[in-house]
Amino acid sequence: MTAPHAQAGHLDPARLWSGGAATAVVAALTAVVGILLARGVFDVPVLAPKGDGVWGDANTMAYALVAAAGALVATALVQVLAATTPRFRTFFTWIMMLATAVATIAPLGLDVAPSSRVATSLINMVIGIAITSITNVVVRSAYRRPPPDYFAPNPGDETELGGEPW
């Protein structure tokens, strides 16, 4: 029986969480930009009545903070999946796609103007896509493979000269 060719890699926690923090900033700013675009350019009241102006009220800050928290939760999720699940990036991407779908569909059932529902839905979708795609890039950067073991036999090489193992 031959030894495994290489060990599995691991995530560098410092790189993962620094990337997760940067992703949280991007998610928060994406929420703010989405709200400014909806209110300022399209004159759609998102999270606040029209009388509150382009910046709205405290709900704008809360929305940005929730988006940032979502990025940090995604970072924690990918770290747990990496430690417990085979092909963790596939599962992470699927979980995030489904969570983004929920966040995109949920506002469509609110009892507010249709333009507010659609704007909130689109903002949630863009935030979800940003968190998912950036976190996947961060994971790729934070993943560390062990150095190759040049003295380990290759799988299938039973003898040095390629003959039958006796």
Score class of each variant (00 low, 15 high):
A71I: 11
P45F: 12
V32M: 04
G162R: 02
T75Y: 01
G156D: 02
P146W: 04
V25L: 15
V54T: 11
L108D: 08
D12N: 06
A119L: 02
A113I: 12
M1I: 12
F151G: 05
L108N: 12
A27R: 12
A31M: 14
N124S: 15
G56N: 09
A130R: 07
P148Q: 00
F88A: 03
G20P: 05
G163F: 01
A113T: 15
M61C: 05
G163H: 04
A106R: 10
V33W: 11
P107Y: 13
G109C: 10
A8E: 08
P155G: 05
G109S: 15
S121C: 02
D157S: 09
M1Q: 04
S18G: 12
V118E: 10
V118N: 13
V54G: 09
G51R: 01
G40Y: 07
T120H: 10
H5M: 02
A71N: 09
V118S: 11
W166F: 08
G56V: 02
W55D: 10
G162V: 09
W166G: 12
T100A: 14
V26R: 01
T100R: 08
G19K: 02
V138R: 01
V25K: 11
A48Y: 14
Q79D: 08
E160M: 08
A21F: 13
N136P: 05
T85D: 06
A14Q: 09
V139M: 06
A3N: 02
P86S: 14
V44D: 05
Q7Y: 07
A76E: 03
A101D: 03
I129R: 00
L81R: 02
S18N: 07
T75A: 08
M1L: 10
V78Q: 04
D43S: 15
A130E: 12
A24R: 06
T85V: 13
G19D: 06
A31E: 15
L161N: 11
I105F: 09
V80R: 11
A31S: 15
T60I: 14
A83N: 07
M97I: 10
K50E: 14
Y143F: 12
T23H: 08
L11E: 03
L37S: 15
F92T: 08
F42K: 11
A3S: 06
Y143T: 07
